[in-house]
Amino acid sequence: MRDNFGRNIDYMRVSITDRCNLRCRYCMPEGARWVPMSEILTYEQIIEICTEAAALGIRKLKVTGGEPLVRRGCPELIRRLKEIPGIQQVTMTTNGILLSQYMDELLRNGLDGVNISLDTLDRERYAWITGSDSLDEVLDSIMRALESGIKVKINSVLFGDEASDEWKSLVLMAKERNIDVRFIELMPIGYGKTFEPISNSRLMTMIRQLYPGIETDESVHGNGPAVYYKIPGFKGSIGFISPIHGKFCHQCNRLRLTSKGILKPCLCYGEGIDLKSVFERKGEKKDDIRRAIRQGIEMKPEGHCFEKKESITENKNMIQIGG
């Protein structure tokens, strides 16, 4: 289905929980509260919503959280999502701590790819960012995922002067491995507003100084807005997702479904469609769900306003939205 600006909306991010086993400072630090389980969508409701979304043209789903693997039954949900007619791809974003434990089951159930969040390879800084000494578990999960043959991407968010050299070790992860290392600009939402981001334009300048032969990678890597580059001699690629300094709204193809059932047309704005309320009504749900999804697509704005913080109307924290 196309929105009012001619963009083909074929991708939906589905948050299945706001809970997480980390406490990343820019996402959900200590003291942040979880949503009661009674307020989040059941798996059956998620399947119903995704089934109607697929009927309207959604072809790719990204399962997110919080941390999706902390919710019991997540691997089985992957299988059920893959079985929906019209769905061509189901991937997941995870912090990697539990991924190694569930890797075999996820593969059996058809997971097509995994994005692993990792902002640093420095053990002390990792513990400072996340509140957990779990770097070894994450690195083990990355290796398990690579060995399985599934498509693996690393998502890194750099912020603060202390991170000015973090990129060097992260970039090197793509040298000997067929892995995409992607740098995502920190968005001014929730706790993210309190930190100073490192722009990808600045980062690219630093990378080019060390690797002057870096060149554009035109191959297709996925469904999102990342721009990719290849460094000579590297097996993997380097990607940049730049919502602030490389606005890509003209090619936005996505919707976001929060764990509470709010369908968000744009990450920047607080407006959304309450799909969970549809299940509280009597009668046939199918048409109501489909009608609400159409409304969400029609609500998509032409662009976000992250470059103008005073215009941002989304007041929730990133973990409540689905990342």
Score class of each variant (00 low, 15 high):
residue 51 T to M: 04
residue 43 Y to H: 07
residue 201 S to E: 09
residue 64 T to S: 08
residue 80 R to A: 03
residue 164 S to G: 06
residue 318 M to H: 04
residue 229 Y to F: 03
residue 137 E to D: 10
residue 315 N to S: 14
residue 117 S to I: 03
residue 215 E to V: 13
residue 181 V to M: 06
residue 16 I to E: 02
residue 38 S to M: 15
residue 195 F to G: 03
residue 91 T to K: 07
residue 167 W to I: 13
residue 99 L to H: 00
residue 88 Q to W: 02
residue 261 G to K: 03
residue 224 G to H: 01
residue 296 G to K: 03
residue 25 R to H: 10
residue 247 K to W: 03
residue 206 M to G: 08
residue 5 F to T: 12
residue 28 M to K: 00
residue 23 R to N: 01
residue 65 G to F: 04
residue 124 E to M: 15
residue 166 E to Q: 10
residue 109 N to V: 04
residue 300 K to N: 04
residue 303 G to D: 06
residue 135 L to P: 06
residue 50 C to G: 01
residue 161 D to R: 15
residue 260 K to N: 11
residue 83 E to H: 03
residue 322 G to P: 04
residue 150 I to L: 15
residue 21 N to I: 00
residue 277 S to K: 14
residue 300 K to Y: 07
residue 48 E to G: 06
residue 283 G to D: 07
residue 219 S to E: 09
residue 163 A to H: 14
residue 45 Q to R: 11
residue 198 I to A: 05
residue 39 E to K: 14
residue 139 L to D: 14
residue 275 L to E: 02
residue 123 R to H: 09
residue 208 R to K: 05
residue 214 I to Q: 04
residue 148 S to L: 05
residue 208 R to L: 09
residue 169 S to T: 13
residue 33 R to F: 10
residue 70 V to I: 08
residue 46 I to C: 03
residue 168 K to G: 09
residue 295 Q to P: 10
residue 302 E to H: 08
residue 45 Q to W: 01
residue 317 N to W: 02
residue 130 T to P: 00
residue 158 L to S: 05
residue 31 G to A: 02
residue 252 C to M: 13
residue 229 Y to G: 13
residue 134 S to P: 04
residue 12 M to V: 15
residue 115 N to L: 00
residue 288 D to F: 09
residue 61 L to V: 02
residue 209 Q to D: 13
residue 215 E to Q: 15
residue 116 I to Y: 12
residue 265 P to W: 06
residue 63 V to S: 13
residue 96 G to S: 05
residue 72 R to G: 08
residue 71 R to G: 01
residue 221 H to T: 06
residue 91 T to Y: 14
residue 215 E to M: 06
residue 74 C to I: 01
residue 79 R to N: 04
residue 37 M to E: 08
residue 209 Q to I: 08
residue 83 E to S: 05
residue 218 E to D: 12
residue 163 A to T: 06
residue 317 N to Q: 01
residue 154 I to A: 01
residue 208 R to W: 11
residue 298 E to G: 12
residue 197 P to F: 12
residue 47 I to S: 02
residue 63 V to P: 12
residue 262 I to N: 08
residue 220 V to G: 14
residue 87 I to W: 02
residue 123 R to L: 07
residue 160 G to M: 02
residue 268 C to M: 13
residue 91 T to P: 03
residue 229 Y to V: 10
residue 271 E to P: 12
residue 286 K to Q: 06
residue 258 T to D: 08
residue 277 S to F: 14
residue 305 C to V: 15
residue 151 K to T: 09
residue 189 I to C: 08
residue 200 N to M: 07
residue 195 F to L: 08
residue 209 Q to M: 09
residue 77 L to Y: 09
residue 136 D to S: 12
residue 94 T to N: 02
residue 197 P to N: 06
residue 287 D to P: 11
residue 254 R to H: 00
residue 279 F to A: 11
residue 125 R to V: 12
residue 215 E to K: 15
residue 250 H to D: 12
residue 254 R to E: 01
residue 195 F to Y: 09
residue 35 V to C: 07
residue 260 K to Q: 14
residue 108 R to G: 04
residue 53 A to M: 01
residue 59 R to W: 03
residue 199 S to E: 11
residue 297 I to N: 10
residue 289 I to G: 01
residue 263 L to G: 08
residue 52 E to N: 07
residue 141 S to E: 00
residue 180 D to Q: 02
residue 157 V to Q: 06
